[in-house]
Structure formats: structure tokens, C-alpha cells
Simulated scan of single mutants.
Amino acid sequence: MDIYQHFREEERPFIDQVLAWREDVELKYQRKLSDFLNPREQDIVKAVMGNHPDFNFGLSGGKDQAERKRAIIAPEYEIIEEEDYQLTMLEASYPAKFVTLEHPDVLGAFMSLGIRREKLGDLVVKDGVIQIITDQEISDYIRMNFTGVKRATVNFEEKPLSQMLESEETWVMKNTTVSSLRLDVLVKEIYGMSRKKAGMHIDSGHVKVNFRVVENGAFQLQEGDLISLRGQGRSKLEEIQGLTKKEKYKVSTSKLN
């Protein structure tokens, strides 16, 4: 079966990367630990690995419901333990009464230190607390160099993964009908705006599909695609249920609130 047929052309380089990891494990009998992967990349790893009898693979981001996870591909006889993912949870507090911090503020501060997003897992900013899952290799660097964000001085300390806070975000489901599966049509429907305004957001690079900026309103969405609109959160095309008698698509969508 051709694995490429299930994914878009622009995803082919990552598919090739996963295939190269698998081949390397097969030739050297040494496991491969990836950087943190977004949900779409995790889906690709699952599709490429399938139930192949010669390999054992797993995903972990510190907790079951983590969004960003690292993958391990290993020879089939090896047992993968949680500590093999080399995850560290760092925590810092800030005076929420005097400083308002949001996810983009803190993530931007990490990026300003030259830390690649792929080295960072889930980030929680909540009630005066910052928590971040990181690659063990950079945890000391973060603790020494990440000392402030906006007007807040912070001091990161290592904490057990079991103390990771739960996100209060919830996905709200909706069933609707749309004239097509174009990106501008779904953005209009999900975010409650005119199609013209949806098109303007897309043309301005404000919309991502599966974590990639898409600037084409005619881009055709597929079941499972994750959409994000700058400043208005994320959503997902959960299911395409078929056509109505008037040739409209019956779809289920969800939006993160």
C-alpha cells in the first residue's frame, strides 16, 4: 500500500523522514528518539509504523492527553519505558496579580533564547504558574537562561511529570452543512464571519492547517484537519458525513474554547 496516498504532497518530506528513521533502526538495531511532534506528525508516524512486526514504537508527552509528543522507534524485542522519552517538566511561578501572561508571551520568550519549538512539549500558563515539558538535554540551559518574561522574573525548577496541570480548554462540537470543503468556507462557518473576511485572514497568513500557514482560500480540507486562526483559537474538521439532497456537505466540526 502506498503510504503517500493518505497524506498531502507537502507532508511527503516528513513521511520520508519517518521512513528513514525506520530503516536506520532496522539496519543498526538502535532505537530512534524523535523531537516533539505535533498531532499531525504523530498521525503520520502511526500510519508509517502501523503494526509492523519488526518494530516497536510509542509516543509520549508526559501525560496521556498531551498534544505534543516524542516518538520512539525501536527493534521489536526492545521494551520502551516512560523514562526512555527523556522528558523533563519545569515549573516557575509569577505574580499573576501584577503581570498578565499568556501562552504566546511565554512561548515567544523561549524562542528568543534560540530554543527550537521541536525541543519543547506542552506549555501551560495558568493561575500564576508556568509549566513546560522539555527535552532533558536542554532543561539545564532553560533554568540558567530563562529568567524573565515581560515584567515578570521567573525561576524554573524541575518537577515530577505527575504534577503537570490539566488544561481547562474544552472542545465544543457542532454539526452543520457547508457548500464546499474549501478553507475559506470552513473558516467562515466555524468562526462566525463573512466569507470575505475569512478570505482576508487567509490571504494575510493568519490561518494554519495542521500547523502550516495556508494562504489559499480554495485549499480543500480533509477529515481530521486542524485549523487555527490567529487570535481566535483552534478548530477541527472532525467528520465528513456525506452530502445532503441539495449537494451540501454534512460535517462535524469542533472548536477549542
Rank of each mutant, 00 (worst) to 15 (best):
S112A: 13
I190A: 15
E157I: 12
L37E: 05
G128P: 07
M49G: 01
T88W: 02
A20S: 11
E67H: 13
K250E: 03
P95C: 00
N145S: 06
L37T: 01
V251N: 03
K208T: 07
E168A: 10
M49F: 03
L256F: 12
Q65K: 10
Q17I: 00
P104R: 15
L19R: 06
V213A: 04
P160V: 06
S139W: 14
S162N: 05
K32H: 05
Q5A: 05
W171P: 08
E137P: 09
E137V: 10
F57M: 00
L19Q: 09
V48W: 00
E91A: 08
D84T: 04
K126Q: 14
V129P: 12
G242D: 08
R234I: 13
Q65Y: 05
E238M: 11
E9F: 01
Q17A: 08
Q232T: 14
Y29C: 15
P104K: 15
R68M: 07
Y249L: 06
E91P: 14
Q5G: 09
V25L: 03
Q65M: 10
S60M: 12
E11K: 01
G231I: 08
S254A: 09
E137T: 12
G242Q: 06
E10Q: 05
G108K: 05
V213T: 14
M111K: 11
Q30Y: 10
N257P: 10
L181W: 04
G192A: 13
D140F: 09
Q42I: 04
K126H: 12
K197T: 12
D122Y: 07
V48T: 00
D43T: 11
F7H: 00
N210G: 06
S60I: 12
A66Q: 08
Q220A: 09
E137I: 11
Q17Y: 09
N216W: 12
L120T: 02
P53T: 09
E223Q: 04
A152E: 02
L19V: 11
I72M: 02
T153R: 15
D64H: 15
L237A: 03
G231F: 14
E26K: 10
L256S: 03
R151T: 13
R182K: 11
E67V: 15
P39G: 01
K255H: 12
I3E: 01
P53E: 08
I44N: 00
L120H: 03
G114H: 13
L243R: 14
K255G: 07
I202Y: 03
I15W: 06
R68V: 03
E23V: 04
Y141N: 11
Q222K: 08
D24C: 09
K174H: 14
I73R: 02
K246A: 10
D135C: 14
R22Q: 01
F57L: 00
E223D: 10
E238A: 09
R116A: 11
A66T: 01
G233E: 08
L113P: 05
Q5K: 11
T176E: 12
V209I: 10
F98V: 08
G114D: 10
Y4E: 01
D16S: 08
A109G: 06
V18C: 01
R117W: 02
K174V: 13
G50K: 07
G50P: 04
D135Q: 08
W21L: 00
M49K: 01
V213W: 07
S254I: 04
D135M: 13
L243G: 04
R143M: 15
I202T: 02
S93I: 05
L113N: 07
M144D: 13
E9I: 01
S34D: 02
I80E: 05
A71Q: 00
L37Y: 08
S228F: 03
E223Y: 04
